[in-house]
Design a protein around this nucleic acid. Structure first.
Lengths: 154, 154
DNA sequence: TTCCGTGCAAAGGTTTTGCATCCTT
DNA sequence: AAGGATGCAAAACCTTTGCACGGAA
């Protein structure tokens, strides 16, 4: 499916132990499994979804471990929270590739897209006056094809 | 403070009754007060904050009315949810002016900024293939001046 | 008068926290 | 052996819902 992805995923997984050490984190089965799960997810899952997926590998895991682990990995810069208007938190693994999000207002699915023309746009001076920017992302909101074709049928 | 704002606010308030009628909504004291409060707020408040502010004018209002009203006004297109990674919902009144958001990762304050160069950028073809886009916004995340100056002192 | 909108209360859903135990280091 | 990480349970927090009453049209 995602050919170039496999390469990135392998690399990140290989570095996981090192990156844990750098951040003073113990390398536990739970952490590795949660991280691996998120690396191979492309749907920006909410915590509950991650919990369900990880549970297939570690049936005894508890949801608060998932919460704590996600917070830890986020602090270490290995995963990111995703902007939504939903009132719940979603995550994605950091793959080191700038990208942006298409969000369907109806089904709430989120898809990545690349936008070089945006990435190379110089930032407005007002931003520098405001503070130190760390990341900049575009969020495009709308109705995905699947949802509006379904709506037309009715 | 915001000279051009006052003009917009007056205009939107004057149209409020009309826009309610158009959407089949009754014009109640609560709705008007919540809408007016949001129009004059520039901090993208969360529901609880809006509740506190409206309560100064209507002490008997209940928070579920605030939730319901915000949902109603959003459906009518008069206010918008704001993208965040916080796991709670924030709102802003729709002023009809395209703008973008600066979000401080530390204090979670959100500030608007204008970015014409972005607004006029043609969208990538992938977006059209995905579906019908309704809005596009930039979110720049970082540390605001106030927060990092405070951190340096220590 | 007719319904929509509100307030109250309770429930539902999401996230955080305290503590004893387990497991990396 | 030591201290961070986990699991369990409970609490805290945020949001939604059912119902009866009140108020706008």
């Amino acid at each position: 499916m995602h050919e170039p992805d496999q390469h990135i995923i392998q690399g990140r997984l290989a570095d996981f132990e090192k990156r844990c050490r750098e951040n003073g984190l113990k390398m536990t089965h739970q952490r590795l499994t949660i991280y691996r799960e998120l690396l191979s997810s492309r749907d920006h899952p909410a915590v509950e979804t991650i919990f369900q997926r990880v549970r297939r590998h570690i049936p005894t895991i508890s949801i608060d471990t998932v919460y704590r682990t996600l917070a830890t990995l986020e602090e270490a810069g290995m995963i990111n929270r995703v902007d939504t208007t939903e009132g719940l938190v979603r995550y994605e693994a950091d793959r080191g590739i700038p990208h942006h999000h298409l969000i369907c207002m109806k089904c709430h699915q989120i898809r990545d897209f690349i936008w070089d023309a945006f990435d190379t746009l110089p930032r407005p001076p007002e931003v520098d006056r405001w503070g130190q920017s760390v990341a900049r992302n575009v969020v495009i909101t709308g109705i995905c094809r699947q949802c509006y074709e379904q709506a037309e049928k009715k």
